[in-house]
Simulated scan of single mutants.
Amino acid sequence: MDGRGPRRRPIAPHERSGVLHPQNLVRFHAQWIDPSPSCSEVVDAYWSVRWNLRPHESVDQRIVDLPAVTLSVERGAVPAPLVVTGVHSRAWTRTIAGSGSVFGIRLRPAGLALVSRLGPADVADTALPVDRDLDAQVHDLLSTVATEDDPLEMAARADAVIGDLVGGSAPDASLLLANAVVDHLRSRLDDRAGPLLASRFGVSQRTVQRALSRTLGHGPKWVARRIRLQHVAQALATVDDRGLARLATDLGYVDQAHLAHDFRAVTGLTPGAYARSLRGLVDDHVG
């Protein structure tokens, strides 16, 4: 690339991608693609995956999302060609089989309100096929992106369409606050929701609560916990659960038991069981 268009790079297993079996990131040729700066208040990242599994093989890929809504163009053995995936309260599973590809647009908190008439409650805990009856604006956006084949070209087309939708106008203050709060929580994993978080932005706790509820359907305490648990899942992919006490301290938990409780509530697994499942997946691939 010459620096004028979107840039792409592999999604590494050590990143906080939300994929609970990160070895699959390599297997599925997962990539990030940077959005244009003109879309910086709308798009957090573009990503793409493609797969070609053996006959009769399937993979149940479990995911703990970053709190974000994703729009996707999907091809091959997929549930629908155009999809919107909302914020999920717990880990969820996508079954992958056959061959196919997905190009995803992970929106920033402000993004859904800027490109759609849907609200977070309309898509919460689900992935919905997109047609014009669901949301004409999102349908047109994804249909235009789907005219391209290469992920880089799809990203460039998404940049152009989203840029036209936003039209150079700045989002309102509540949307910008939601973006800023999530950015802060992603960079400061030990921070907690509450008066200190609100004071960082010069607003009340209620203002932060309203901004995140409006954009993500959840308040700051929930959002902070989900971001931390993504980090826990990533850490357990590289170290076993014997380092959990130190991890709990680093993330500001009272103790290891509280971290383990939160992790199990979202994933359905204890940290130890999750770490063992990762080792089993590696053994299966090696075998």
Rank of each mutant, 00 (worst) to 15 (best):
S213M: 14
A211V: 08
I227Y: 00
W222G: 00
A237L: 11
H218G: 04
A237G: 15
T238Q: 14
G219E: 02
Q234C: 12
G219M: 03
R225F: 00
V239M: 14
Q234Y: 05
T238H: 14
S213F: 11
A224I: 05
H231F: 15
A211Q: 03
P220M: 04
T215R: 01
Q230Y: 00
G219A: 02
V239P: 02
V239R: 15
V239N: 11
G217H: 03
H231N: 09
P220L: 06
T238Y: 11
A233I: 13
L212E: 05
A233D: 09
R226D: 03
I227E: 02
K221Y: 06
R226G: 01
T215F: 05
Q230W: 03
Q209M: 06
V232G: 03
A235C: 10
R214S: 14
A235P: 06
V232W: 01
R210L: 11
W222P: 01
A233N: 08
T215E: 01
R226A: 06
T238F: 14
D240A: 11
A233M: 09
A235T: 15
K221S: 12
A224W: 01
R228G: 05
Q230S: 10
A235Y: 13
S213V: 13
L216T: 07
R228H: 02
Q230G: 15
H231Q: 10
H231G: 03
L236Q: 09
S213Y: 09
V239T: 15
R214P: 04
A211N: 07
L216C: 07
A224P: 04
R214G: 07
T238G: 14
V223C: 03
K221T: 11
Q230N: 13
Q230K: 04
P220I: 06
I227L: 14
A211C: 10
S213G: 10
Q234T: 15
R228L: 10
T215W: 01
R210M: 04
K221R: 12
A237I: 06
V239C: 14
A235N: 05
T215Y: 02
Q230M: 13
H218S: 08
T215K: 00
S213D: 13
T238I: 14
W222Q: 08
A233W: 06
R210W: 03
A235M: 12
Q209T: 12
S213Q: 13
G219D: 03
P220K: 05
H218Q: 08
L236W: 07
R214N: 10
R214W: 08
R214K: 13
D240N: 15
K221P: 00
L236A: 11
L236D: 09
W222M: 03
L229P: 03
R226Q: 11
L236E: 09
V239H: 12
V239L: 14
G219F: 01
L229W: 04
Q234R: 15
L216K: 02
R210T: 12
D240V: 13
A224C: 05
H231E: 13
A233T: 11
R228P: 01
P220A: 11
L229Y: 00
A235V: 15
A224R: 02
L236N: 05
G219W: 04
R228Q: 13
H231P: 07
H218D: 07
A233R: 07
A237M: 08
